[in-house]
């Protein structure tokens, strides 16, 4: 049967045609295509993954913003509270300081008043003693105008000394 006996010429050409086709495609065709297809598949996979991540992030952005806002508010409140606390503290401190200062000033005033009082007292004493001496002198002078009075006094003094 003609159909079932392979023709040598055709076998020869088929072999050559296939060999050339295979060499050409295996060198310049398939590796390029397969490499590109694999790369593209990977890129697409990565893109999908990235998009999913982005979507995920977008979905959670509102929540996150809310969270940040709440945090910020809490922080603000805390800061306000801190500031108020600090204010009262400063005022308290200032008050205390002022009290201490006033006390100091008052003490100093008291001391100086006391001192001036003492000085005045001393001066008054001196004045008084001076006046009394002058008065005594004047009285003495008036009493001691006669000799008799003088002798009497001397006697008296001498008696006193003797008694002592």
């Amino acid at each position: 049967m003609e159909l079932f006996t392979p023709d040598l010429g055709l076998v020869f050409w088929m072999f050559i045609a296939f060999a050339i086709l295979f060499i050409v495609l295996a060198k310049w065709g398939w590796p390029v295509i397969l490499k590109n297809m694999n790369e593209r598949a990977e890129t697409i996979d990565k893109g999908v993954e990235y998009a999913q991540q982005a979507k995920h992030q977008l979905d959670h952005a509102r929540e996150e913003a809310q969270k940040y806002m709440e945090e910020a508010q809490a922080k603000q409140a805390e800061m306000l509270r801190d500031a108020a606390k600090m204010k009262t503290q400063i005022i308290e401190e200032a008050k205390a300081q002022a009290g201490v200062e006033a006390q100091k000033v008052m003490d100093a005033a008291k001391v100086s008043i006391e001192q001036s009082r003492k000085e005045a007292e001393l001066q008054f004493k001196n004045e008084v003693s001076k006046f009394s001496i002058e008065i005594a002198e004047k009285m003495l002078r008036s009493q001691m105008k006669n000799d008799e009075a003088q002798v009497k006094l001397v006697d008296k003094l001498l008696d006193e000394i003797e008694n002592n």
């Binding site: 055709l10 045609a17 086709l21 050409v24 495609l25 310049w28 065709g29």
Partner: peptide, 17 residues
């Protein structure tokens, strides 16, 4: 026909490459 088929396959594949 073999040659034509080879050329067609080459053109097809190389066009993609």
């Amino acid at each position: 026909a073999l040659i034509i088929a080879s050329i067609l396959v080459t053109l097809m594949v190389m066009s993609v490459a």
